[in-house]
Design a protein around this nucleic acid. Structure first.
Length: 470
RNA sequence: GGCGGCGUAGCCAAGAGGAUAAGGCAGCGGUCUGCAAAACCGCUAUUCGCCGGUUCGAUUCCGGCCGCCGCCUCCA
């Protein structure tokens, strides 16, 4: 049974959807003011793994990921580039979609944009005002945290009274809030800012309200799982709980699941340190999307990941091992039949894989299971014990595992295609075989080099020559 | 100051109160090969930052120390 670490309880707890069928997942998505960096992408890969695994477990997954397309940064960015807010955010929204496709992240069920839900946000703000959880000051509406006693339950941050060090840096704020911890639900428009009319005058929604509104709009008042990066626990997620539960009177989220950050070369990623990588940066340096995704999966999601170029090189080679294995498997010259040993190993691997993933998504452990099976299979190949029915079974297992890992999707598709007999290649291989028999190794090597130049790798086995694409 | 995490082989990284401490990368030696490629076999942590405690038994639990990192209304 799947169990997940729930930030709200600080414990790992058994998970299943509240209704037993549909997993309702809300994931904090990108603020589209810039190109995503590798740290953002790690979090999206993490929520991708989560959703893929929920589907693997047989539940229907409805993942909603918001696109924040109005906030201080997007407004500032649009102004500095001389674009309208929507032109500006649309550009980065498209970059975001390209990035997740490149990293083989499965699309969410819905990607609602904040600017398309202004009316619903205003309605929620009004509800909070009506219920006495919010107040208005000069066109701004704030949430009154003193009206919500449970405030702080997720993050452990303490509010007024006691040592409220969480708010020690809040002095001098420009807004006239009654309590330092109160946060904006609606912000009055400043001159030249994009704004929407509202009962409180022209303005725009606060950051937190969008997630409450869009999650409830598509998934109802109670979510099964809400994901995000650890940095969002406070104040963002804390505020979401306050707004949502104050408005509906129902529990907002059953499981809070947060992904740890990554650091780069042991240091916090920052533009000034020059270790601020975007996906494009890494692709330009020649790294493959496959290796990048793998590197993001090398550490458990609740563990900080030290992202390094050296680590990427290692992932590149690791993926090479995987790819070579998959590419040669369907072309091996094998005796007829199937091996009981292979069936046993696969069964064992399936059980262990699920056990690893059930344990709070232990992806590094699950990868270990996959590579153990690869090694075992290779050993059997070398021992001449693999039979011609076996590769299909191994590939089936890898396909199952990959429905979760998403690391070898292209390779498996290629292998599943009828290994089209390329007449030209076969002819060259035959020609080379004759040359080798004749002792004309120069000519044999010439043919091998020629094919290598086309990305065709030849391997001489004891029972014949096989080829694979690089 | 408050909250949280980490320290496992040359590197990355799982794990777990007691069975040979996964897996990947790199290295060395071997097998196979005309040479390669791929792969396999063997070697590479008698030991899990340091010091105590609990226990029949701890690297795994507890305490202290050292080192590193993150969060505390910009933030994945």
């Amino acid at each position: 049974m799947l169990s997940l670490y729930n930030t709200a309880t600080r414990q790992q707890q058994p998970f299943e959807p509240a209704d037993g069928k549909i997993a309702r997942v809300y994931s904090c998505g990108p603020t589209v003011y810039d190109v995503a960096h590798i740290g953002n992408l790690r979090t999206f890969v993490f929520s991708d793994i989560l959703c893929r695994y929920l589907a693997f477990k047989g539940w229907e997954v409805r993942q909603v990921m918001n696109i924040t397309d109005v906030d201080d940064k997007t407004i500032a960015g649009a102004i500095s580039e001389g674009l309208s807010l929507s032109e500006y955010t649309e550009k980065y929204t498209q970059y975001f979609f390209e990035d997740i496709e490149t990293l083989n992240i499965k699309p969410a069920w819905k990607y609602p944009r904040a600017t398309e839900h202004i009316e619903q946000m205003q309605a929620l703000v009004q509800t909070l005002l009506d219920k006495g959880h919010a107040y208005e000051v000069d066109g701004n509406v704030y949430f009154d945290i003193s009206s919500f006693p449970a405030y702080g339950k997720l993050s452990g941050v303490q509010t007024a009274g006691g040592s409220s060090c969480g708010f020690s840096r809040l002095e001098g704020d420009e807004y006239e809030r009654e309590e330092a911890g109160d946060f904006a639900l609606w912000k009055a428009a400043k001159p030249d800012e994009p704004s929407w009319d509202s009962p409180w005058g022209p303005g725009r929604p606060g950051w937190h309200i969008e997630c409450s509104v869009m999650s409830m709009e598509y998934l109802g008042p109670t979510l099964d799982i809400h994901t995000g990066g650890v940095d969002l626990i406070f104040p963002h997620h804390e505020n979401e709980i306050a707004q949502s539960e104050a408005a509906t009177g129902e529990p907002f989220v059953r499981f809070w699941v947060h992904g740890e950050h990554l650091v780069v070369e042991g240091e916090k990623m920052s533009k000034s340190l020059g270790n601020f990588y975007t996906l494009r940066d890494l692709l330009d340096r020649g790294y493959s999307p496959q290796a990048i995704r793998h590197q993001l999966l090398t550490a458990h999601y609740r563990q900080q990941l030290n992202f390094t170029l050296d680590g990427l090189e290692q992932s590149e080679r690791t993926m090479q091992r995987l790819n070579t294995f998959i590419a040669r498997l369907p072309r091996l010259p094998l005796l007829e039949g199937s091996s009981e040993e292979v069936a046993d190993r696969i069964e064992e691997a399936q059980a262990k894989f699920e056990q690893m993933m059930d344990d709070d998504l232990n992806v590094p452990g699950a990868l270990g299971v996959v590579f153990e099976l690869i090694k075992d299979t290779n050993t059997l190949i070398d021992a001449g014990e693999l039979r011609d029915q076996d590769p299909m079974m191994v590939l089936d297992f890898l396909t199952q595992a990959d429905s979760v890992l998403g690391l070898m999707t292209n390779q498996l598709e290629e292998a599943a295609r009828e290994p089209a007999l390329d007449k030209e290649i076969e002819a060259l291989i035959a020609e080379r075989e004759q040359a080798r028999k004749d002792g004309d190794f120069a000519h044999a090597d010439e043919i091998r080099d020629q094919l290598a130049a086309q990305g065709i790798i030849l391997e001489d086995t004891t029972t014949g020559t096989i080829w694979r694409r690089q």
